[in-house]
Each structure stands twice: as structure tokens, then as C-alpha cells.
Nucleic acid binder design. Sequence first.
DNA 1: CATGAATGAGATTTCATTCAT
DNA 2: TATGAATGAAATCTCATTCAT
Lengths: 204, 204, 204, 204
Amino acid sequence: MEKRQSGSARRQQIVDAALAILNEQGVHRLTAAEIAARVGISDGTIFRHFPNKEAIVQAAIDSFEALLFAGFPPADPDPLARLRTFFIGRLALLREHPAIFQLAFTDRLAEAAGQEGADRMRAIVLRQFAFVRHCLVEAQERGDVGADLAPETLVWTVIGMLRGVSMVLQQGVIGPELISGESVWQNLETLLRRSAVPRGVPQR
Amino acid sequence: MEKRQSGSARRQQIVDAALAILNEQGVHRLTAAEIAARVGISDGTIFRHFPNKEAIVQAAIDSFEALLFAGFPPADPDPLARLRTFFIGRLALLREHPAIFQLAFTDRLAEAAGQEGADRMRAIVLRQFAFVRHCLVEAQERGDVGADLAPETLVWTVIGMLRGVSMVLQQGVIGPELISGESVWQNLETLLRRSAVPRGVPQR
Amino acid sequence: MEKRQSGSARRQQIVDAALAILNEQGVHRLTAAEIAARVGISDGTIFRHFPNKEAIVQAAIDSFEALLFAGFPPADPDPLARLRTFFIGRLALLREHPAIFQLAFTDRLAEAAGQEGADRMRAIVLRQFAFVRHCLVEAQERGDVGADLAPETLVWTVIGMLRGVSMVLQQGVIGPELISGESVWQNLETLLRRSAVPRGVPQR
Amino acid sequence: MEKRQSGSARRQQIVDAALAILNEQGVHRLTAAEIAARVGISDGTIFRHFPNKEAIVQAAIDSFEALLFAGFPPADPDPLARLRTFFIGRLALLREHPAIFQLAFTDRLAEAAGQEGADRMRAIVLRQFAFVRHCLVEAQERGDVGADLAPETLVWTVIGMLRGVSMVLQQGVIGPELISGESVWQNLETLLRRSAVPRGVPQR
DNA sequence: CATGAATGAGATTTCATTCAT
DNA sequence: TATGAATGAAATCTCATTCAT
């Protein structure tokens, strides 16, 4: 319960608390009192740092976006290598900021932030989708990935893999050992590469 | 909005309204007043039919579960055919009960229903995962799908594909033309089958 | 759940249920739904027998009053014998209608019945007090009871004794064996008679 | 109605208001709005000071208990003197905190406070009864009070006398002039002492 | 900057009462 | 008479936000 933090430090504490609450307890528990309790200040003080609750969630989306798009997009020339860098980066995010990672597969941030926040969240999702899609189309053109497949379905495979990891983390659902290391990426890359029809080998 | 419905009819109307609100507006708009307005009754009347709001969401989960598991699991002997039946059935659900379909990829029902609801939703998710996984393991044993891949990653691909379709529906994000027909399943099946290493053909 | 009772039978059932609820659960649980549940009818039906809830409580007070003043006042010529008849009658009421007996030492009926009910209850109390007081004053005049004592304090002793018995019944507080038989009256009569200063014996 | 009281001051105001309402208007008028109106704040503010209504009544019972047992039990060596101190103390309470005094003969606090409150109230009643009983038994052993009488009946006489005074206060029923001074105690003491059979004087 | 009391709008829930069936 | 769906007012409680200290 340290007093008189500098403004920006407090702001970040508040934003982090909001993200943690949203991830752990959901939209309906994101209250000024709950945030204040986590930060260790009194509830009225929240509004010395933000004009209202929505502004907190907007700032949380800022924070979310900054972490999601740090070093984005990767620059590798090979499309699957680029995708790999992205994917591995996401798994790193999972370890360092699990709340952020998990909130990416949820609409809690969007719901808490009103219409404007929902629009921003959609844009964030689309930006990632577009990146993944671009990698995959390029890989298709190179023949690394099956060119006869709709790129969207490949995108969904990639995103679905990340979401699977998120659910493992959240629920301890399947095998948590899969999270560490790069085995998930290996599985994904194998799946994608094999979708390219080997020349001369007839497919069913 | 006809007056004096029978009790069970009203109950179902209330449940349907709750599901629609949850899907369209989110947890924080699921209020007794909002439900009542949709059904065309006064808000106090809600509680002649349900003891409290949580009971409404529990009933909504009942409804959700019944639709999700009607004719489940499919009985086809071939594992990929079984998976296909499941997948096509889900796409049918998407057309007939889009709200139900979309709520399956959300934690709104879980969040609105308290701890007990969250537990039930987790069990529902796990039941589907287990079915998909079982199909895939059997397909791996038959050599229809790459046996060297972790079954979980394959599960996530399948579920990710459904979620992708859900997002298309919800946001008009990518190409909505993909929803109709069986093209998504075709893409998915191709992806899975090609993951099986063809005998005698060396992979990278 | 017998249907189509005659009107007066239902009325009495409703009144009895109201008295029982008031005694067992208190004012705040005296609801139309609770009464109906005890009687075994549906809640709306209550209002086919009474215009409103207050009328039920008024009828309950009627019932209460009728039982309290059946055969009242006793006619014995000797004042203490008259008081004894009254007292023993009250103990009989305790055994036959414990709820009625207990409600006499409570303001629940008064509180549930609004201003008019409160006034009626006060009148009932006063009528009993007046009777007891009259007996005692006459006994004082005869020299059976100490004439130097304020009659009110003697009244309070008598009423206090009945209330004590009521509390024993209600809480199992002290010795429930005292309820049966006439021992309480014996104690009370002894107390009253000894308060008369024996001639020729100086009191401290 | 000064604004911005300190927390503990407001708490006490709320408790006092609750006690006053309970005494003057009864359980069914003890509402947040009524309390708030008395205190001069808005009803939502009540719940910044107490988590719920039951907690208010629990605090009211605290207050009630503290006043009832201040300087309790008296320490006089002579049992009747001890009882006198108790009795006079109660009459002082009557003058200084009439609401508290009257609530002692009511089950309103118990009814308003749920099961836990009812249990606490019963314990309070029993504690007083035990004290009075102990005094009387000791007085019986000394021969100051009739040893052949059941101590409970004597307890009820003592308590009944206090309740009588309470009713006078509450309803203006009998003679309010009796409240002031010590005349009630004089009557009670006389009654008790005369119940001791004077040696050598045969009783009826 | 910080506190926490206060507000007022809104959410949940209760309940007496009405009325179509 | 009986049922139980419906109403609407009131009660409890929550919470974002304000503001005196």
C-alpha cells in the first residue's frame, strides 16, 4: 500500500490489475473497488488516474496491443520462417504475460470497453489474421503448403493451435507438457508442409 | 408477445432470450429487465418462472447442451467419417441455432452462471474434445492421419476450424461464402489425410 | 390438497395457517405464498377468501380473541378462586393452542395487522389486565393479598408468570416439567397470599 | 444531518436509527430507506457502512448487549441487594435508553437478525435469567425468600415486573407515575420477602 | 495524490394483488 | 372456487463516479 506513486506507475498498476481481473474473474468482477483492492489504493483514487472505467479498459487494450505487436511483424524472408517467429513469439508471450495471451482468445476486453473497444479489438484480431494469411498464401505460392486449400482454413488451423495452448494453460485440460518447448510449432509446421502435394505422388 | 403463456413455454422463451442476449450483447447486458423486454413480460414475472438469474443461465446451459449433444456421438465405424458427421452436424447447428454455435466458443455462459455453470461448461468442452481426439487417434492407428503428430494438436486444428467459421459468422470477418456447403470440411479432411506419411515417399 | 372446500372451512384453514406462521416464523414470513403453501392451495386463491392480507390478520385476531375470551370472565365469587380459574384456563389454552398462547406475549399479531389491529390487540391486553387487576383489588380488600402493594405490580406478577410459562414452552429454557399440572399456580397463589401481612406479626 | 461523518460515527447513527425504528415501528418497517431517512443519508450509503441489513441488526444487538450488561453483574454480597442493584439499573436504562429497554421484552431484534441473531438474543435472555435466579436461590438459602417456591416462578415475577414497567412506558397503559422512583422495586422486594415463612407463624 | 463518505442510477428479488382460464 | 401467470411497487444491494477533507 505504497502512497504517492508517480502518475504513470499507478496507471500501469491499475491497467495490470484490470487485465488480471478480467482474465481471472471476468467482466462482471471488473469493478473500481476490485481494481483498487488489487492495487492497494482506495476506490475513489482510481478516478484520479483515469476519467472513468472505460478509459481504464482502453488503456488495457493499449497495453494488450503493445505486447501483442511488439516486434511485429517478423521480417524473415521465408514465409513459414516468418510464421514460426510469430508463433514462437506468441508462446513466449504465454510464459511472460499469460493473462494477455489468454485474453486474446476471449471477448472480455471487447465487452468491457464498449463499442469503441470492441472495434479496436476486432482490428487487432484482423491484423493478426491478415499477417498469418499473408504468410500462408506466400507459402502456398512457393509450394510449401497445399495451394488447393483455402487460406482461411489454414489461418484457422494456426490460430486454433494457439487457442489450444491457451486452453491448456487455463484449464489444465489436456497435456500441459506441450506448452513448453517448440513441439506445438513442430506439429503445426509438419501439418502445413505435408499439405503440399508431393510432386508425382497422387492424392486420393 | 401473447399474454398468459403456459409456464413451460415462458421458461423456454426466457431461456432463448437469455441465450440471444448473451450472444449478441454479452454478460453485462444479461439483465432481468433486458430478458423481460425481449420476452414481452415485466421483469418481476421472470422470477415466477425461475428462482434467480443464475437458474436462468443454468437452464440456458441445459438448452445449449441438449442442442450440442443431440445425436452425439455419431456412430460411423470409420473414424474420419465419424468426425465428418460431427463436423457437418456442427455446421448445421450454425445455420439453425447460430447463437448456440457461437456461444460454444465463448466463456459467456460460464461467466454468467457462476462456479457451477463454469464447471458444467468445462465438462461440455471436454466431452467434445475427447470425442474428436478419439476419432483422430483411431485415424492415426489406421494410418489415415499422421501418427507422429500429437493428437492434441490435431484436435485443436479441428476445433480451430469450427471457431473460424464462428468468427466469420459473427464478424463478417473473412469470407462468409465458406460457411455454406462442405468446403470447410473438405479443406480440413485434406489437411488431416495429407498429414499421413505416404508409404515409400520420404518426407522432408 | 383437497379442492373446493366450503368457504368458511377454507377461511379457518387460512387463519390457522397465518397464526402458525406468525408464531413459528415471524411477521416477515407471513406472506400469501407461505400461507397458501401451508393450506395446500395456490397463492392467488387466498384472495378469493379474503380481500387482502390485513383481513386475514384481522380474522386471526378474531380467532385469537375468541379463544382467549371463551368463558371469560370466570364467575367464582372468591377473587383468588376467579383468578385461579382464569390462570388454569390459560394453561389449558397453552396445551390446546400453544400458538395462540404464545402469540399473546408477542406483538406479532399487532404488527402484522396495521394500526387497527394494533388497537384491537391493545384492547385485548387491557381487558385481561383489568380483569386480573379487579380480582387482585378485591382480594386486597378481603385481606387475602397485601393491601399495601400497588395492584399493578401484582398484575405484572400474574402476567409475568404466564409469560414465563410461555417462554419455557417456546425455548425449552428452564424447566418444562413446570408447565404441566398446577404447580405454577400454586407458587403464584402462595406468593400472593403471603403478601398479606399476617395480623399481629410485624413485618421488617 | 451533517454531511461526511466519520465512518464509526455513521455506523453508530445507523445502529441507533435501526434500534429506534425496530422499537417504534416494528420489523417490517426496518428498511434501508427508512434507516437512511432517519440518519439523513441516501439508502445506498447504508451499504458502504454495513455489508447488508442483517449486519446492521447484528451491530444493533451488540449495542443492545453492551448497554444491557454494562456493570453487570452487580457485586453486592447480599443477594436481594444485588437484585435491587440490577433492578434499579434496569429502571435507569429505561429512562436513558427507553428503546433498548423495551426491545428487551420483544423478539423484534431476534426476528430481524436471522438465526444467528435469534441465538444471540436467546443467550442474552438466558444470561439475565441465570443471574436473577442465582440471586433468588441464594436469598432462599438465607431465608429471605420463601424456600418452598420454585425459583423459576420467582424469576418470572421479577422479570414480569420489569416487563410491566416497559408496557406502561410503551402504551401509557396503566399508571406511568409508577415508573419514576423506586416504588416498583419496593413492591417487588416486599412481595419476595413476605414469601419467606416467618418462623413460628403457621401459614395457611 | 490519496482517502473514503456520499450519491444516484440500476440490478436483483420479493410480494400483495389481479385476472384470464 | 381454484389455478398460476402477470403486474408493479417496494426492498435489498451494487457500483461508477464525485468531492470534502
